[in-house]
């Protein structure tokens, strides 16, 4: 029931800006149900843009899907990669938000990221590794920044890979730390890069994002990322 409600909220809100921004965000980030399930056929980018009020730089913000995109959706070709994963971390929402908010920290636990360079409050440049030593790059903008609660971002026009996502920090019950939910969507551009992207995320992008969140947790709780790389063995 919750998913359906969320979705109808999103749709009505894109048509009307009568509610405050945080109230509109609540429809996405509130509740414990799967966000992506609530979105169903709708793109994450569209939903993020709709609740954030949109922005000219971020193409496709409120617009309807183009006909080719609609056909691709209907036939399942060029399906976007969508991932949702939650981990509970034994630290305050504020600590976790602050670490994540410095986007340049992300490559320390996200292995597919080579670097993130922050230009200003809103704009950053991301470089991710791709197979065969190649890399993909994009500029991203922060779509919403709610201290200790949420950071949402989306790539801007001209990105190698169109992508968007958010991270939500929500206190867990009775001193059990903070639930950190990440929702990501990558829209493959087609052609060779689609294959590259698929390889980048492997066959199970959820497992990869899970591993990255698990490294984030290790870093924040234990102060280091567990590894055995560089230890001896009898493999010559």
């Amino acid at each position: 029931m919750e998913e359906v409600t969320n979705q109808s909220n999103l749709q009505s809100q894109s048509a009307s800006d009568s509610k405050g921004e945080s109230e509109r965000w609540a429809s996405i980030i509130g509740g414990s149900a799967m966000v992506l399930m609530g979105l169903q056929q709708r793109s994450l980018r569209g939903a993020l843009m709709a609740v954030a009020g949109g922005s000219l730089a971020l193409h496709g913000a409120k617009s309807e899907k183009s006909l080719p995109a609609t056909i691709a959706d209907a036939t399942g070709i060029n399906k976007s990669i969508r991932v949702e994963k939650t981990v509970t971390i034994n630290r305050s929402a504020s600590d976790l938000y602050n670490f994540w908010h410095d986007l340049e920290n992300l490559p320390t636990f996200m292995q597919h990221l080579k670097s993130v360079k922050v230009h200003d409050d809103k704009r950053s440049h991301w470089i991710a590794t791709a197979p065969l030593g190649a890399s993909v790059e994009w500029d991203a903008e922060i779509v919403s920044d709610q201290p200790d609660r949420l950071i949402a971002w989306a790539s801007v026009e001209g990105a190698d890979v169109d992508n968007s996502g958010f991270v939500r920090f929500q206190p867990a019950p009775q001193g059990r730390g903070t639930e950190v939910k990440v929702v990501l969507e990558y829209n493959p551009p087609g052609g060779a890069l689609t294959g590259a992207l698929a390889k980048l995320f492997g066959e199970e992008p959820e497992q990869q994002i899970g591993a990255e969140l698990s490294r984030f947790k290790q870093l924040m709780e234990a102060g280091e990322i567990a590894t055995t790389e560089g230890q001896p063995s009898g493999r010559s």
Partner: peptide
């Protein structure tokens, strides 16, 4: 055991959340 996670702090050391670099395999 890391000593800082939910489990270590509740004396459930062998259930530590942070010491297995291959946690994803175990989760499967």
């Amino acid at each position: 055991s890391c000593g800082n996670c939910f489990f270590c702090q509740r004396d459930l050391w062998s259930l530590c959340d942070n010491s297995n670099p291959n946690a994803a395999i175990a989760e499967k």
